[in-house]
């Protein structure tokens, strides 16, 4: 073995002067990966983000349809979710030293109300609160923190998912911009994995679509993160009416594989 000495030595920083410095890594990068991973036990696997409804009602059947669906989703509800997640994260972070300062609780509740107003479909509200509750349950076990207990106590039916995501991310040590990326990622991964399961699409092709969307996702996450400190009422309110309508119809089906 020749690694016994190098293993404990910090590698020299690359000094090539003509190379741009690598993009800054978000803090708590490991926590971000955990939170953004679809395997996180927080209930997302049972949801399709409206994809199951789109397959039946809007004839989404192939990669082209999936890509269009994902682009629409990330530009609307994905952007809103990312901005609210980032705002919730910023709010919790600012209150963290004095844990659960009442200011934080009130701000989270404002964000929750604003999201409610941006979610006209009752079925989508239900799905979002259910996911928020499940994420909070997960967060309470994985990153126990009094702020999460207070959030759980304050929202009997569970907070909307982006509020929960922002709060859990904050106690996991993430910054608003990191959670914006997690939210944007989630907004496409949920329907993309559902498409693989539901339509039997080639998983490599689906991931190629996701990779192609990378610039879009980065742009939306960046824009959302920039709004993390905006007043709740000023956060984006992009809507996807077709998603609202099809989710309502989906909720009435006798037979469905996904919860939303």
């Amino acid at each position: 073995m020749t690694t016994s000495t190098t293993a404990t030595t910090t590698p020299a920083a690359p000094t090539t002067p003509d190379r741009p410095s690598p993009p800054p890594v978000p803090d708590s990068f490991a926590a971000l990966l955990l939170l953004a991973d679809g395997r996180l036990p927080a209930g997302a696997h049972a949801h399709s983000g409206g994809l199951e409804a789109a397959v039946a009602l809007e004839d989404l059947q192939d990669l082209t349809g999936l890509e269009a669906f994902l682009r629409g989703r990330v530009a609307t509800v994905g952007h809103v979710a990312a901005a609210f997640s980032a705002a919730a994260c910023a709010s919790v972070r600012s209150g963290l030293p004095v844990t659960g300062g009442s200011g934080t609780a009130a701000e989270l509740s404002r964000l929750d109300d604003e999201l409610e107003a941006r979610t006209p479909s009752p079925a989508l509200r239900t799905a979002s609160r259910r996911l928020g509750r499940q994420l909070l349950r997960c967060g309470l076990r994985v990153w126990p923190h009094s702020t999460l207990d207070e959030l759980a106590a304050a929202t009997r039916r569970g907070p909307h998912q982006p509020v929960a995501l922002g709060a859990v991310a904050a106690v996991a040590g993430l910054e608003p911009r990191a959670v914006a990326w997690a939210a944007v990622h989630d907004s496409v991964m949920v329907p993309a994995t559902a498409a693989v399961r539901l339509l039997g699409l080639d998983p490599y092709s689906v991931y190629a679509v996701l990779a192609r969307l990378g610039d879009r996702l980065d742009a939306v996450a960046t824009a959302a993160a920039a709004q993390a400190h905006a007043a709740p009422a000023d956060l984006p309110a992009w809507g996807a009416p077709l998603l609202d309508v099809s989710t309502e119809l989906h909720a009435t089906w006798e037979v469905r594989l996904f919860a939303s």
Binding site: R39, R133, Q134, R137, L198, L257, A259
Partner: peptide
Amino acid sequence: AVETGCCPHTAIRDDISANLE
């Protein structure tokens, strides 16, 4: 009744949150 998103084993093993709820 709990929906399992095409993955019944996930809902009872890997992500038990909906069942716990």
